[in-house]
């Protein structure tokens, strides 16, 4: 009964949303170029089905690679900040300053430096926009590790690496996944930003742009839906990873 409710209620909510959308367009008698209605979307999807697959794949792999780099680099920076007070004092203002720059302003800068390298630029932006939360959370997780945790292994003569591997790393995982949930959304935004803004881009962002250029409004809305679907997919992929690697952090429901 409860599982049925968990499945049925969200589906009903989505259907209700689509119905309201359709009704809104129908009641106002809006033409397609003002706002497409849900019933316009399936034909748009079908018409450009191969483009959707290809561009969706482009967006997906570049987001994932960018996020992967962000995880590696962010964890590394977080480790350095977590273990060294000097590094933390030095890096923190730099990171905060960099994070404060709206990333859209970096698109032309990057496009100029790496002209024509569309894949590279997109991955780079996904990476740049998403590593900050990971670096900060890993850094804070490591620097707030209670000394007793370290002492139980240190008193046995364990090396720093062993202490990191057996205690510090697993203990930071819940914070890490919390940050990863933010980062995956950011990386997705970064990818789309470059795809939309860059000339001759590829990916769902470029498809959106071409819909705009050609006045194909149902296509634009169809891209939005596809982006939402991809975003949900990425987010839930992170949730599954979290369940696997940091499921212990979930308190038993009582």
């Amino acid at each position: 009964m409860e599982t049925l409710q968990k499945i049925v209620v969200p589906i009903l909510a989505v259907l209700l949303f689509l119905w309201a959308w359709e009704a809104l367009v129908w009641v106002n008698d809006w033409p397609n170029y003002k706002m497409a209605s849900p019933s316009d979307l399936p034909p748009a999807f079908w018409k450009f089905r191969w483009l959707f697959l290809e561009m969706g794949w482009q967006t997906l792999w570049r987001t994932v690679v960018g996020l992967g780099l962000a995880v590696l680099f962010g964890t590394l920076v977080g480790m350095i900040m977590g273990f060294s007070r000097i590094a933390r004092d030095g890096l923190y203002p730099l990171l905060v300053g960099f994070n404060a720059i709206p990333k859209a302003t970096l698109v032309p800068v990057i496009s100029l430096i790496f002209i024509g390298q569309h894949d590279f630029n997109t991955v780079l932006m996904a990476f740049l926009i998403s590593f900050f939360p990971i670096a900060v959370s890993v850094g804070i997780g490591l620097s707030t590790l209670e000394p007793e945790y370290r002492d139980i292994l240190r008193s046995l003569g364990a090396s720093r690496l062993t202490i990191f591997r057996k205690i510090a790393l697993p203990k930071t995982l819940p914070e890490f996944f919390g940050a990863l949930k933010v980062s995956v959304t950011l990386a997705f935004i970064g990818t789309n930003l470059v795809e939309i803004v860059a000339p001759h881009g590829r990916g769902l962002g470029a498809l959106f742009k071409s819909g705009e250029t050609n006045g194909d409004y149902p296509l634009m809305f169809a891209v939005l839906i596809a982006l939402a679907a991809l975003g949900i997919l990425l987010y839930y992929a992170v949730l599954v990873l979290e369940r696997i690697f940091a499921g212990w952090a979930e308190r038993p429901q009582s």
Binding site: E146, E148, D151, K171
Partner: peptide, 11 residues
């Protein structure tokens, strides 16, 4: 070593 806080590893 044993402390006031049992410092068991939750995972």
């Amino acid at each position: 070593m044993a402390f006031q806080n049992p410092v068991l590893l939750e995972w």
